[in-house]
């Protein structure tokens, strides 16, 4: 079932980074743990600023962490 148009691999990246906890990531990017959980489930589309902060924690580019799954504009 389709969720948000923006997918992400935050959960995978957390485990690749020494099994970083949701709480730790939340503290590092300045949001609540609830926000990290809904983000991982694709239930919340973050602002660009938060997306950049998350990507920076994992030393990745924005597109390595977040993927746009919406339709391409025609024309």
């Amino acid at each position: 079932m389709a969720k948000a148009d923006i997918a992400n691999c935050i959960r995978k990246l957390r485990f690749e980074h020494g099994e970083m906890t949701q709480k730790e990531l939340a503290e590092r990017v300045g949001c609540t743990r609830q926000t990290i959980v809904v983000l991982e489930h694709g239930r919340f589309v973050p602002s660009l600023a938060l997306a950049f902060r998350i990507a920076r924690v994992f030393s990745r580019t924005l597109e390595e962490v977040f993927q746009f799954e919406g339709e391409q504009p025609s024309g």
Binding site: M1, K3, Q34, V37, H41
Partner: peptide, 20 residues
Amino acid sequence: RLPATSPEERSEIASLPMTG
């Protein structure tokens, strides 16, 4: 809004501490 959350998602969010 997005499609209704699954029971697993709901229970995971419900188990988290409340936000301030």
